[in-house]
Design a protein around this nucleic acid. Structure first.
Length: 677
RNA sequence: GCCGAGGUAGCUCAGCUGGUUAGAGCGCAUGAUUCAUAAUCAUGAGGUCGGCGGUUCAAGCCCGCCUCUCGGUACCA
């Protein structure tokens, strides 16, 4: 394996439109912090880079909604995020933000280099333009009626009520959210990064060169490469972001996906004038810690950018994690279904390590995992308190009691003593091995085995009995128990930095140094330890119940919201309404459209004729169970070809709050062809 | 539909290029113990390794089909 002189660890930039939650922590920041702390303890040259991602349309929308500027939005969340990371002990060497001047310079330069090298292609395209506000509209700035579910308030990229992803041009009756006017199509020029051009290189580099990447990462890259890469726009029409540094590009900024990863580089520049040692020297190892939603950007898009630029190194590994769920449901910022870090730090003051421990022991390394408060409590009480805290406490209390806090001298070692001392080294070794391979769950379990070893050693040697029958033997036992404790103080430092620090203070040890790990004489004979205090406290049921109640409240609030009917659409005249010809018909035949998930091909007797309609209801109905069903059908909708079938009309469906579709059917049977008016 | 990842004890997960009676932690049961925040230590119960079929002397691991979960992608008049 190649030896590197330096390591640069980047962590996905949190988007500054909300605080950080446990999903972010478990997936990215906790493992990255553990890894970096470990390397630092080993005396390695390593940097941990982070920062807030502050551009992009969602932030401008949030600002508009709250009547403040985008800068206000990002200032607010950047502060919350930065403070909570610091208080939580994520040991960034630099935590920057993409609205800083140095980032604007770095990103502009980066773009300009690629531009000058001819690495972009230029394309004109037609996009919606707001004539009143005099600006092009990003997809998110356009709302209208969803062509799928018919609900108002769908965005140009997605309908939030049915979850369908859309093109802005699909929207019925589009409106600009800026001025409320109807947008017009207008031509605009943008630059594209031709990912397809880099495909052969990426294929070679990943599929041949990095077979050691985690299977989820490797698999997703392969999936994308096999689908074929497309040119991707690097600019867009918006006034919030890094301006495109080219003449005649007024009103255009770098697309946020292009700008954000460059933030890693700007943050490093902000930190040190030697930043090129970390970015442009192939003796440096670049690692990206991310969640699975970011795999494609960090394994395909960003490397393509770096390669196109030419002077940068590429990531050596991208240890991406899966997602963490909360009490069985997906974490969601918009639904407020999350444990927010800044709130946790208040509710569980000085319990940073408990959350760090739980999130590491249950990290979503190979598949999505579930965080439950009950598990949180159990791991604290049964593992941190009972195994780690308890061992530390009993070895220190005994030392105080028998030897007045002075480390007693080692006497003659029994075979069991030697075996136990050797086990320390073995545990350190397997912890290291797990850490080197980004297996943090396994690593923390191994580290805990050291505390288990200590408990077993005390139980087997029983110094509290020997003190009466064989007092000369006890100093050796207590010396060994204390050496195990001292080893724990170092070994657990990357995972539980606050508790490890506290333990070192109790042991009167000084700074941690990984080189001492596995050493059998960390504490010298006669060394005085301090009075012990508890490392971890039990968490009682009521503290857990408070959290569960809060989540229950969120659930109720969300239900209340979805029960509220959408507001009425704008008025239409009777003449407009009467242009629609809605009839009652009967389903004669139904079959699933091959190679689709949602589509049924229906044959309808409309009373006028028998016609074919394709309908997206296959997820809710089996073909055989709807034959004979009476339905309402819009018969004069312009026909459209779907999956090679001409669809002549649209079946009317009512959508329930949970998204379930039901037919709009006459309350008693009527003749086919009856008009609905 | 297609692509990717996953489905192993009640829970959370290990299981290397296929090889003896499938492992760990937590939980549970029983016993021991009291230095310790009733914490600890030992022992034990508990699994047709998602299902069916195949290859092999031998399959949790390889192949085929099916099924469920998560993600991506197509599609929704």
């Amino acid at each position: 394996m190649k030896q590197f002189k330096r390591t640069l660890v980047t962590t996905a930039l949190p988007y500054a439109n909300g605080p950080v939650h446990i999903g972010h922590l478990a997936g990215v920041y906790v493992p990255a912090d553990i890894y970096v702390r470990y390397l630092r303890l080993k005396g390695k040259d390593v940097l941990l880079i982070g920062g807030s991602d502050e551009h992009g349309v969602p932030i401008t929308l949030k600002a508009r909604k709250e009547g403040i500027t985008p800068q206000d939005v990002v200032d607010k969340y950047h502060r919350i995020i930065e403070d909570s990371f610091r208080d939580f002990g994520i040991s960034f060497d630099v935590y920057s933000r993409t609205s800083r001047k140095i980032h604007y310079e770095t990103a502009s330069q980066f773009f300009r280099t690629l531009y000058d090298k001819g690495e972009f292609i230029e394309k004109e395209s037609e996009q919606y333009y707001d004539d009143e506000a005099k600006q092009f509209l990003a997809d998110r700035y356009i709302t209208g009626t969803c062509p799928h579910c018919g609900k108002d308030g769908a965005y140009g990229d997605q309908c939030e009520s049915c979850g369908t992803s859309l093109n802005a041009t699909d929207l019925i009756n589009p409106k600009s959210t800026i001025s409320g006017s109807t947008p017009v199509m207008k031509s605009t020029k943008h630059w594209y990064l031709p990912l397809d051009k880099h495909e052969p290189f990426l294929r070679q580099w990943i599929l041949e060169g990095h077979k050691e990447w985690k299977s989820n990462v490797y698999g997703q890259c392969k999936s994308w490469l096999d689908l074929g890469l497309q040119p991707r726009a690097v600019s867009r029409d918006l006034d919030w972001g890094v301006p495109v540094p080219v003449d005649g590009a007024d009103g255009k900024v770098l697309y946020v996906w292009f700008d954000a990863p460059i933030g890693y580089i700007s943050a490093t520049r902000e930190l040190t004038p030697d930043w090129e040692k970390y970015w442009k020297d192939d003796e440096c190892r670049l690692l990206h810690f991310i969640g699975k939603d970011n795999i494609v950007f960090h394994c395909i898009v960003f490397p393509a950018m770096l390669k196109a630029e030419g002077s940068y190194i590429l990531p050596e590994n991208v240890p991406a994690n899966e997602f963490l769920n909360l009490e069985g449901d997906k974490i969601s910022t918009s639904r407020n279904w999350a444990v927010w870090l800044h709130e946790y730090l208040i509710d569980f003051k000085d319990k940073q390590d408990v959350l760090r421990y739980v999130l590491t022991a249950n990290a979503p390394e190979t598949k999505d995992n579930d965080f439950t408060w009950k598990d949180f409590q159990a791991r604290n009480n049964n593992e941190l308190v009972a195994i780690y805290g308890n061992f530390v406490n009993r070895s220190m209390v005994l030392t105080q009691k028998y030897y007045d806090g002075k480390v007693p001298a080692l006497g003659t070692l029994t075979d069991f003593d030697k075996e136990t001392l050797d086990s320390i080294g073995a545990i350190v070794k397997s912890t290291e091995e797990a850490l080197e391979n980004f297996k943090f769950r396994e690593a923390i379990k191994e580290a805990m085995n050291l505390a288990r070893l200590g408990n077993k050693y005390l139980a087997d040697t029983e110094p509290w009995k020997l003190i009466k029958t064989d007092p000369d033997r006890v100093p050796t036992i207590m010396n060994i128990a204390l050496q195990i404790t001292a080893n724990l103080a170092i070994l657990t430092e990357p995972f539980l930095p606050f508790s490890a620090q506290k333990l070192r203070n109790m042991l009167n040890m000084g700074e941690a140094n990984w080189k001492l790990c596995g050493n059998k004489e960390i504490l010298m004979t006669g060394h005085t330890i301090n009075e012990p205090s508890l490392l971890f406290d039990k968490i009682e049921d009521d503290a857990i119940q408070i959290q569960l109640n809060r989540l229950e409240q969120t659930k109720l609030a969300n239900q209340a919201e979805t029960k509220t009917a959408a507001p009425a659409k704008a008025n239409v005249s009777y003449d407009e309404f009467s242009t629609m010809d809605i009839r009652i018909g009967t389903i004669l035949e139904a079959e699933k459209v091959a190679k689709t998930k949602k589509l049924l091909k229906l044959k309808i007797d409309t009373g006028i004729d028998q016609r074919t309609v394709v309908s997206g209801i296959a997820e809710y109905f089996q073909p055989e169970e709807i034959i004979g069903q009476q339905v309402s059908i819009l018969v004069n909708l312009a026909p459209r070809n779907i999956k090679g079938i001409d669809s002549q009309g649209m079946i009317l469906m009512a959508e329930d709050a949970d998204g379930k579709l039901v037919f709009v059917t006459p309350s008693s049977k009527v003749k086919n062809g009856s008009e609905v008016k």
